[in-house]
Write a protein that binds this DNA or RNA. Structure first.
Lengths: 234, 234
DNA sequence: CGCCTGCTTGATGACAATCAAGTTTAGTGG
DNA sequence: CCACTAAACTTGATTGTCATCAAGCAGGCG
């Protein structure tokens, strides 16, 4: 499963799993079962923007949103993250987003200082960290294109296709059920729209037979080709 | 000088200069004067989106824009880059943007395969690459907030303040002249607006005394405080 | 000096935000 | 298990804002 922070089409799942390095290779951390696992309920905050970075989080299960809030309360969700994604990449020593659990979530955390020590002696871990950052960067660039230049229909189409890749483990079968763990408001704040507009586009796609809405939080893709064309995703 | 891909306020210049590592530490590349320097004229393309990545580029002088083009010609500029910034970070083996010189530009390039070899033996270089990627990621997140949730006035204010930090070497004196090497259309395509809207906001800020336009491509900041408030940049 | 490109300003209209009701869903307690 | 409540979602009507269309203006380069 990959981050859907991205609106990238040709992206495939990239193996992250820092635990492999920190536990199996380096044995720095105790086993997840022992100490470095945390659980969050839906709605709980995992980290706050501008806090000093002490930990790096790896999602074990669940879905997490990251966001920034402006003075007057406007919110931009900058990404959705799920199993194996990494949260809390450090820049200038501070988190550059807040993160909140959308569903009940389990994370594995690693202390940053240990991580930095490890990087010195473990080039494979360093390579992995670089890859993770680059993938997130690539995904975020795709999202810039959505927010800056795509119309509401196109943004939603892009988002739905990303949801599919995110939900579906392997080759997506035409009729596989895709789930939307986040609210309409979350989707709106991710796509730079209002929840009303998101609703209307969902309904429109449903009526047009591009998707079939099973419930507010589940749908299937009925016309992937047309959706891809809308998404400008060749 | 830092990338102004970012709309980040509290960001400071981060030293990149990969040459330090590749030349002084590792002596892998010949001296810049000899072989790994390239020059581009204003308007020339440096790299194309979706091309296989062979090189990493470090800007020596000049200003570069990166962008993505949609099917029907809509363009999103994803960042402006200048001295010491790195272009061509690899994700999934392909460049995820095209890059074009705005002014005459000199770059120093490094082959990716060499780079990867170096990473294995040089943890400091790895650390540097990670930092660069994280900074770019942080900057891009700030830009997501601009595009998704800020109003045109606020986006322009954010942009102008970034231009100041980008132009000004050190502590910005109130009246220092800031230059805009990119066209109004470039600015518009960066901010998700039209060039007409950008023009109008520039004029409005000029009339209101927030800035003083010296020419189409030069201005001074007259009321930084008010601009910062507009930019939602505490 | 004159043209051409880029910039600026104005008039108009489309589209998404806002405001406002309803409707459905999920969660809680009897 | 079902009734009740609150939150989330959906749909409709109206408004405001920014894109579009259009026309001058100016500055830079041959």
């Amino acid at each position: 499963m990959r981050s859907i922070a991205l609106a990238k089409n040709n992206a495939v799942k990239y193996p992250s799993c820092l635990s492999t390095f920190t536990q199996d290779n380096a044995k720095i951390f105790p086993h997840p079962e022992v100490r470095n696992i945390l659980n969050y309920h839906s709605g709980q905050t995992i980290l706050f923007e501008d806090d000093t970075i002490h930990y790096l989080y790896e999602i074990v299960t669940g879905t997490v949103k990251t966001y920034t809030i402006l003075n007057d309360g406007r919110r931009q969700i900058t990404g959705f993250y799920t199993k194996d994604d990494i949260l809390g990449l450090p820049a200038r020593g501070r988190y550059f987003y807040s993160a909140e659990a959308i569903t009940d979530t389990t994370v594995c955390y690693h202390t940053l200082s240990r991580m930095e020590q490890l990087l010195q002696s473990n080039p494979d871990l360093a390579q992995k960290m670089i890859e993770i950052a680059y993938h997130q960067l690539s995904d975020t660039h795709a999202q810039l294109v959505s927010l800056g230049r795509k119309k509401p229909d196109e943004r939603v189409a892009t988002f739905l296709l990303n949801c599919q890749r995110w939900t579906t483990i392997q080759v997506p079968s035409q009729e596989a059920v895709v789930s939307l763990p986040m609210s309409r408001l979350d989707i709106a704040d991710y796509l730079g729209l209002t929840q009303e507009t998101v609703c209307r586009v969902f309904s429109k796609f449903n009526r047009a037979g591009l998707i079939k809405l099973l419930s507010a939080s589940q749908f299937t893709l009925k016309d992937q080709k047309q959706l891809s064309a809308l998404a400008q995703t060749l």
